[in-house]
Computed example of a mutant assay.
Amino acid sequence: MATCPICRRLPADAKYKPFCSKRCADVDLQRWFAGSYVAPGGSDETPSRDEDEG
């Protein structure tokens, strides 16, 4: 059985899976809002081209 990714306890309530409680689910959500987690991906910026270049 998998453990809670926040506190490493066994999940106590299937409602909050994979977390063990609402508290751990809220901690995870707050980490996303704070920018502690970053999803991998490319840059959002489009490279600019100078019209004077070839």
Rank of each mutant, 00 (worst) to 15 (best):
A2V: 15
C20L: 10
R8S: 15
R9W: 04
K15L: 13
P11L: 04
P40R: 06
T3C: 09
C24R: 00
P5D: 07
F19N: 00
E51Q: 07
A2T: 13
V27D: 02
D50Q: 12
D26L: 14
E53F: 01
D26P: 00
P11N: 05
E53D: 14
D52C: 05
A25W: 03
D50G: 10
E51H: 02
S21P: 01
L10F: 13
T46L: 09
P18M: 05
R49K: 06
A39V: 08
V38F: 13
L29G: 10
V38Q: 13
L29W: 11
D28Y: 06
Y37F: 15
R31I: 06
F19A: 00
D13M: 03
R8H: 15
C4M: 11
G41S: 02
T3M: 09
E45I: 14
S21N: 02
A34W: 02
Y16M: 06
K17V: 03
R31Y: 10
D28T: 00
D44H: 06
K15E: 14
K17N: 08
C4G: 05
G42K: 09
S43L: 10
L10T: 11
P11G: 03
D50E: 10
D52T: 15
R8L: 15
D44I: 07
R8Q: 15
P18I: 03
R31A: 15
R23D: 08
P5W: 09
R23K: 13
T46N: 04
A12D: 08
D44V: 07
D26Q: 14
G41P: 00
E51K: 07
S48R: 10
A12P: 01
V27P: 00
R8D: 15
D13G: 03
F33W: 09
P11K: 01
K22V: 11
C7G: 05
A12N: 04
Y16A: 05
K15N: 14
E51A: 12
F19M: 01
G41I: 01
Q30F: 10
C7M: 09
K15A: 12
K22S: 14
F33E: 12
S21F: 00
A25T: 08
D26K: 09
Q30L: 13
T46E: 08
K22Y: 09
A2N: 13
D26I: 09
D28E: 06
W32M: 03
D28A: 12
A2I: 15
T3S: 12
K22N: 13
R31W: 14
Q30G: 08
R9C: 11
C4F: 05
G35L: 05
C20Q: 05
R8Y: 11
A12G: 07
P5N: 07
G41C: 03
P40Y: 07
R31D: 10
D28R: 01
E45R: 13
C24Q: 02
Y16L: 07
P47D: 04
Q30T: 07
R49D: 04
C7F: 07
D26M: 09
K17R: 11
C24Y: 01
D13A: 08
T3G: 08
K22A: 15
C20F: 05
G54L: 09
T46S: 05
R49W: 00
P18K: 01
L10D: 11
L10R: 11
E45W: 05
R49V: 10
V38E: 13
